[in-house]
Design a protein around this nucleic acid. Sequence first.
DNA 1: ATTCGGCATGTAAAGGTTTACATTCTTGAC
DNA 2: GTCAAGAATGTAAACCTTTACATGCCGAAT
Lengths: 329, 329
Amino acid sequence: MIAGVSIATVSRALNEPGKVADSTRRKVIEAVARTGYTTNAMARNLRTRKSNMILILAPDVGDPNFSNILVGLETAASRRGYGVLIGNTRNDPERETDYLRFISSNQADGIILLTGHLPFGLSAHPGMRLPPMVAINEPVPDAGIPFVGVDNAEGARVATDHLISQGHRDIAFIGHAPGRLVAGLRETGYRTAMAGAGLEIDPRFVLEADGTTESGRAATERMFVRDRLPTAFFCVNDATALGVIIALTARSYNLPHDFSIMGFDDISYASFVSPSLTTMKQPRLQIGEASMDLLLAMLEGEPAGHRHHLHRAELILRNSVALNRKHRP
Amino acid sequence: MIAGVSIATVSRALNEPGKVADSTRRKVIEAVARTGYTTNAMARNLRTRKSNMILILAPDVGDPNFSNILVGLETAASRRGYGVLIGNTRNDPERETDYLRFISSNQADGIILLTGHLPFGLSAHPGMRLPPMVAINEPVPDAGIPFVGVDNAEGARVATDHLISQGHRDIAFIGHAPGRLVAGLRETGYRTAMAGAGLEIDPRFVLEADGTTESGRAATERMFVRDRLPTAFFCVNDATALGVIIALTARSYNLPHDFSIMGFDDISYASFVSPSLTTMKQPRLQIGEASMDLLLAMLEGEPAGHRHHLHRAELILRNSVALNRKHRP
DNA sequence: ATTCGGCATGTAAAGGTTTACATTCTTGAC
DNA sequence: GTCAAGAATGTAAACCTTTACATGCCGAAT
């Protein structure tokens, strides 16, 4: 070689500085600098059977909730020299299967799952050896996959407590949805807070909604056929809260004077709606970083550890919640 | 081998079906299915010196404008069997350089650039052979890199024409910014439309703003020290328009009755502000797909072709623009 | 003086493809 | 029946590392 040493020594000089004499190492790095040599990652990956790539499977890459998580994932990955490969599954089983080619062909070492279920191709071939995985957003049921996410029940409890602290007693929950895990946890938190304050929940104040803005609007309309109304709405997420605001504004109510509204998520336009939305902020960046750190640790052989890693949501005070003027303490 | 043929034949059967007898090809794919064989991409990449990966360099992956472009990029890439690697540069030269390791180590075949400039490491080493690149959002000056984006001047002209068609004559432009290419083009479109309609532009109606919500708010405030006011505001982008709306609402104007406001971009919350924003929609999905298609074509050896590929922005009618009631035709 | 241990380096195999080239087989024409 | 041409298949090199093992060297211990 140009540095006057064997090719193996070059490899050692670059990767295990301890195992090589100082003098030769200096010669090597000097030669490398001079020739502009750069090691071919493909050859290395072929030999080491590692790609230093992480595959991220998300049902909707365009979702604004996703982008901040992605920033966290990318930050943590690049800090440890890993690359981040993104796969938009659109909940299409075929696409999920297709993306597994990165795993089976050794182009990715692990998966971050935002889909809430195992990729279709994996569950279909139970024999296939599972790559290291970490789930975000929605846990994967019964697969023993570590989960990183927000503590939905606790966050919902804090949110509801805040409404209670503002003197509200008749608090509706918009977003009851039997099948949905996250919605269920948030409802649990709501019920916990109400029970903790000794408040009863009027069953007519718990309305179904599927988490979309339209469903929030529709649920609010349904509420108005009742004779009795709540003074505050705790919504399963910000999109739903937006629908509630739209419905109430359309009925010419003065917000937050007439009704208080609380969201969950702190999506990007929560501060732009009028009234700006009081909500629970998901620590998306943190979640992204923590889950990537966890996955990389697993790749280095650390045991998976605790099943669930929950992060606290943060109460963001804006203008959609006010003191309950009907309340006489 | 298990199919009774040589390893080379397997390779041919899988990659060049024409060059192999039907009977043996059938045997091969049967054996492949039986053994669950999957070709090692690393070995292939090593041999072919291609990775089938595209690196995307963006200054801010979290930007909501970016996520839809990303969806388009990913869709087009996965359609042709390519993977998409994302790099968040945060405009940090060090990170830009760092990401080039994917190129120099053959882990990526081409780059989609959203940064508006060559990655730092490239411009520093002029000797380094450039990988195929396509720029989006902002063209890269003087580098001969094909650009895909929205036709800003034409879109701004259409937007301004729409205001004119609603009877507005005194139209302000919020977002004059000497150094910024995109802002300049939009201002040009505004001036073209005004000139085309034979309208003069009061220089006091062209205000500086840097594209942020706060700058739009501040510019509007500055406008109110004048004796004369426009009837409509054409804003360089939606974020700025939002600032204008905030300022006017704070002054208790009734929108769009008192003033019309037009944005540009159609960011995700444009429909949620009140009044909902009339704006020009950037065809982000299209832009993403088109630029990826272009890059992949270049990788297949097609010449780069036209320098600029411009897509039309689409006028989205909402509620922030109204007829000019002061106008007597 | 001999042997041993330890360190620095070299040698060569292995990793799984693709592909140029060599070989064998098939087919049809004479 | 021979031959040529062309198609199908096999052989082996190349892609570029990493790493187990071998070698060589030096100093220290016996």
